[in-house]
């Protein structure tokens, strides 16, 4: 039971972080399909930081530095999406897909190059962080408490406040709803969209490092992040682009995901003899049905996916 709660919370943390990233980007009017790739890059940044930082650094600063590295990688990588889609008006869906293809491959090439440079015979794409991982975890009895759970709550509150209570957030959302109107009252749409995409890069990067620290302590970069970026997109839509609803739907999705890993603990579930893949499939099926029911009155930002062109009114 404790295991189920623990897995649910950690999976939900990843989903909340990444979905909030998508939320910022889409509210500014840019569809960010590249979250998967951004997560991989964030994970790479964090993993490299854990590889090279001396372990002697006190816990708090160590965690902070690793997070900053992940955020930095995420932001830099997402700027590729921003340049292509905002300045050069490229198709957002296509660039997002390319970011996903590129992310995993580039991270693998890089890690392999680093590994072979250290040891000629080592051609794996693994980074191990057994010692550093312990700094992210505190034990409360049997419960393995992960600091990311706190970070996620902070990130959630920050996202809510920024989006709804600050001038910046309201302007950002205006750019996703009606950029021409926003521009006419003096808001720089290009800058706002850049901000939206970069913030989504930061959140995506955080989600990425959270994901690889969730279970294992050796990460193989060939595997990417197994569709969590896409799942986060589903969470975001399920949550109707609102931070508090995103948190709730992430809990639901995380719960099913965790159930797939831990269902053997529950006798009545084992007795039902459902294969574990059924639980893994569940979030996708639910979101597909919900999408079918709600899409015709969806609260999606109206101008998302359309490159802003000043000369078009």
């Amino acid at each position: 039971m404790i295991l189920l709660i623990q897995y649910t919370l950690i999976f939900s943390s990843v989903l909340i972080l990444v979905a909030l990233g998508g939320c910022f980007s889409e509210h500014s009017g840019v569809i960010n399909l590249g979250l998967e790739g951004i997560m991989v890059m964030g994970a790479l940044g964090g993993a490299l930081a854990m590889k090279y930082l001396p372990i002697a650094i006190p816990g708090f600063f160590y965690v902070l530095l690793v997070l900053l590295a992940a955020i930095l990688f995420g932001v830099v990588y997402s700027s590729l999406l921003a340049v292509a889609c905002i300045n050069y008006k490229a198709d957002q869906t296509i660039v997002g897909t390319a970011l996903n293809m590129l992310g995993t491959a580039a991270a693998t090439v890089l890690v392999k190059a680093i590994n072979t440079a250290e040891n000629v015979n080592n051609v794996s794409s693994e980074i191990s962080y057994i010692e550093p991982k312990k700094k992210f975890i505190a034990y409360l009895g049997e419960f393995e408490f992960n600091w990311f759970m706190v970070i996620t709550i902070i990130a959630l509150v920050v996202a809510y406040v920024v989006l709804y209570k600050t001038r910046f957030g309201l302007r950002l959302m205006a750019c996703g709803e009606h950029p021409q109107a926003a521009d006419s009252v003096g808001i720089n749409v290009y800058k706002m969209r850049w901000a939206g995409v970069l913030i989504s890069g930061a959140y995506g990067g955080l989600g990425g490092i959270c994901y690889i620290l969730a279970g294992v302590s050796i990460w193989k970069f060939e595997y990417g992040v197994a569709g969590f970026g896409f799942l986060a997109l589903a969470v975001m839509i399920f949550g109707q682009w609102k931070p508090h609803r995103i948190a709730l739907s992430a809990l639901l999705f995380g719960f099913f995901r965790a159930l797939g890993n831990t269902y053997t603990v529950f006798e009545f579930l084992v007795n039902m003899k459902l294969p574990s893949t059924v639980y893994n499939m569940m979030p996708y099926i639910i979101s597909l049905i919900v999408l079918a029911l709600t899409s015709s009155h969806s609260r999606a930002p109206k101008a998302e996916g359309i490159p802003y062109d000043k000369s078009q009114r």
């Binding site: 590729l80 292509a84 050069y88 008006k89 490229a90 198709d91 296509i94 660039v95 897909t97 390319a98 970011l99 293809m101 590129l102 995993t104 491959a105 580039a106 693998t108 090439v109 392999k112 190059a113 051609v123 060939e222 490159p307």
Partner: peptide, 27 residues
């Protein structure tokens, strides 16, 4: 040959990005 094969995927990904940037040509 000891070349990380993912280089090929990187090339493919870049090709897609450059293609998406084609709309920049209209600028």
């Amino acid at each position: 040959m000891g070349i990380p094969k993912e280089v090929v995927t990187v090339i493919e990904g870049l090709i897609v990005i450059f293609i998406a940037l084609r709309s920049g040509l209209s600028l």
